[in-house]
């Protein structure tokens, strides 16, 4: 690009829109973390259901310990991505705090509910988790202007409403179902979009 001084207003508007579009395409999410978390939580949910429903294992909830490993991996992954990245976006920053507040809220609610009787705890935990989970997914969709995540968030709230009428055993299957709708599908769509924009960029570079 040269520094052409005499621009028409149309040319100026074209430069502005093309640069903003360029940034959005270059720094679109590759969907990796959505797919990682989606699949991990999906398999944890299925494993918990199998352990509880078929084997009546009292320690079925321990499968969720795997999430700590994924969380540590994510911290290192994001740190490396931050170091390698040569741009910081506003949306990335807002989304980071949306998810951070979700994780903190999740801990607070979990600790508060753990004082309840086991039967009440088991009745409430899945609907509450799904209702809360819908919030960051929905907000991420709004911030990124990405409809699959908006629908994913709404789907979590619908699943939460239905889960209230289902026994604990089958409530456990709502978590993997929410993962497929709210993370795995949007993750695949993001991955596909990222692949397409990278390919288009290579062709235009």
């Amino acid at each position: 690009m040269e520094n052409k001084p005499a621009l028409t207003p149309e040319e100026s508007l074209h430069i502005i829109s093309s640069m903003i579009d360029n940034v959005q395409k270059r720094y679109s999410d590759n969907g990796f973390l959505y797919l990682l978390w989606g699949w991990v939580v999906f398999f944890c949910g299925i494993a918990q259901f199998i352990l509880w429903h078929f084997f009546h294992n009292q320690n079925h909830y321990l499968v969720w310990s795997v999430l700590w490993v994924v969380l540590i991996f994510e911290i290192f992954y994001l740190r490396k991505k931050r170091v390698d990245s040569n741009v910081r976006s506003y949306t990335g920053n807002i989304i980071k705090y949306v998810w951070l507040s979700f994780v903190l809220l999740l801990m607070v609610i979990f600790i508060s509910l753990s004082h309840l009787d086991l039967s009440i705890f088991q009745t409430l935990i899945v609907p509450v988790m799904l209702a809360m989970y819908g919030l960051p997914v929905f907000l991420s969709g709004i911030i990124l202007r990405f409809k699959p995540l908006i629908f994913g968030g709404i789907a979590c709230w619908i699943l939460s409403l239905i889960a209230g009428y289902v026994s604990y055993d089958y409530q456990l299957l709502f978590i993997p179902a929410a993962m497929v709708i709210a993370w795995i599908l949007p993750g695949f769509i993001l991955k596909k979009k990222f692949g397409e924009s990278s390919k288009a960029r290579i062709m235009t570079d």
Partner: peptide, 14 residues
Amino acid sequence: SQLRLAIMSLLISV
């Protein structure tokens, strides 16, 4: 000017 406007347009979104 073309390049300065491009720089500003880019930085306004990040």
